[in-house]
Design a protein around this nucleic acid. Sequence first.
DNA 1: ACCGTTTAGCAAATCGGTTTGCACGAATCA
DNA 2: TGATTCGTGCAAACCGATTTGCTAAACGGT
Lengths: 332, 332
Amino acid sequence: MKKPTISDLAQAAGVSKTTVSHAFSGRRHVDPETRERIEKIAQEIGYRPNRAAQHLRTGRTGMIALASSMPFSVAAGPSRLGFLMEIAATAAVASLTRNMALCLIPPFQSGAQLDAITPDGVILVEPFQDDPLVQHFTGLGVPVVSVGRVPGREDIPHVDLNSGATARMVLEHLRASGATRIGLVTGEQRRNSYIETEAAYRAFCDEIGIEPACLQLNESGGEDLAAEAVASLLSRRGDIDALYVPVDAFASGAVTAAASKGLKIPQNIRLATRYDGLRAKLSRPPLTAVELHLEAIADLAVGLLMAAIDGEVAGPVSAPQPELVLRASTAS
Amino acid sequence: MKKPTISDLAQAAGVSKTTVSHAFSGRRHVDPETRERIEKIAQEIGYRPNRAAQHLRTGRTGMIALASSMPFSVAAGPSRLGFLMEIAATAAVASLTRNMALCLIPPFQSGAQLDAITPDGVILVEPFQDDPLVQHFTGLGVPVVSVGRVPGREDIPHVDLNSGATARMVLEHLRASGATRIGLVTGEQRRNSYIETEAAYRAFCDEIGIEPACLQLNESGGEDLAAEAVASLLSRRGDIDALYVPVDAFASGAVTAAASKGLKIPQNIRLATRYDGLRAKLSRPPLTAVELHLEAIADLAVGLLMAAIDGEVAGPVSAPQPELVLRASTAS
DNA sequence: ACCGTTTAGCAAATCGGTTTGCACGAATCA
DNA sequence: TGATTCGTGCAAACCGATTTGCTAAACGGT
């Protein structure tokens, strides 16, 4: 009771394997009548092409991979998982409709592990400069696209997150809500979103004539590190009355820091973050955040990747306009 | 500049393909000296076996799939994502170390989508009775293991979550913290954890002689539905002074409901949930929850699946002892 | 010296598709 | 009528591994 092969089907339909193959792939014309007969019989005997055989011949594996260079379960963990998972969920659907499987790459460990997987293409979520994942896959000749530009690698197609514009939007909102001294907390890794955000922030400070107050934290430190670092920043710079903290785990830390300093949100200090996940929503008070449209972004990324796999040189694509989600943490 | 094949390597090493194959797989003995030479040359020319060819020959695809029958991104979304993703993260690592790729199956849609993927095995997270995913894969002859028993399918290997014991533990804790009338909120779908939990709950009520108060909610309704339903329950049964709400999204709803009724947690009503994710941690007050050891569970599930794929008939395995995580929501 | 047993390695078949080159008849054209 | 094209389909090569059956040499025991 083995699974029927293309030969079985060909025999049952009284045609050759070639014809069956063409009937399915459409790479050559076959008589509509013949094709219909083949399809009908295929249904009956329950034929489904063997993926491995297809892949061997075509040189494709039929799978694309999704990876984030953020620590996966450690430290920044749960919040980042939300971000990645929202993308994963949509990407999985998008892949499947294109007849591809989406598989998960846990954070880079020994590197040898990565050999187990030979995807047709990879989506990297917010890689940083000289990210080993980028190097691994491009070195293998595997097409890579990223969510967020890869610093220093303009050649890699990506979905542009418009982090500069996003930062601008948030900063202006903070000011409109009454803030006069705004600080910024990002991460140490040179991810493009940080770079753009910082640039936009400095430009903004210049314009309105305030002294920049930047913090770059080690992402593995997570919420606790942020709580500590922000508290110390607030001690040094007592004039700060607002913070933009794109990484939501850090934003949680900032909430803790504010509380420890006896500062009320938003009365004494306003707080906005970027990823509108559970943290932002469940925080007390809930945090103003940015709707990034991750589903759309994931869709775009998959589309880009498919094009790249097909050898098309697609330029970067812009994510949909991000939107502010106003919450109590920045109420004026 | 094509990738070297086994033939190239064999030629370079002055042996046959067979010897190379055996050198790598170890399925037959090869002279250690020869093997070393082969490995060295493989390094030099950058040989890596073609997965597709291996799969074709061995009949394996080298990928296992992870699926949850919970709505993936809708409704209960983010919280569930945490649960699934914690498992996914560990499972991905566990798979990769076994030279397998882990791929994600988004929630059952048309069914036709699922054809794109032919995994060697599948891990299902808390499937319910007559779950279409179970039927799809077992029908295809693909080994299935589940996290949480599959009701009505004792033949499917699973990691037992000991939901009955967990419920007992939580209920006893609630009572110890001062509760006298405890209610239970679960989901409509017939997942084993609900079934066991309800049974343990009824037994518990019987024992201590209290009237059971159960709610079964549609999981797609998520937090909002729970808020509504729990509020109405609290109106009907004003005597209730504690709730065990295993699904964390529902627990969030219960928090809202309590607030809307003017009930203070834990003074007027105690609240405990199961999955110790962001919701439980970030809730105000933070919720007592259960450390399920999801990483260990995921590891066990992958192990079970590998055994099943290798044709071993492994019985169910028990998850590590769950532990209560005490938080303010049940302080006495 | 003989026979049985390891040991090391090879050639060839195999997995199930896709793709190429060719054949044959019918239709079109000069 | 002969040449050319088109439509349809087939046989065979091919993708790159694994696995089977076999050979030949080395070894050991009697």
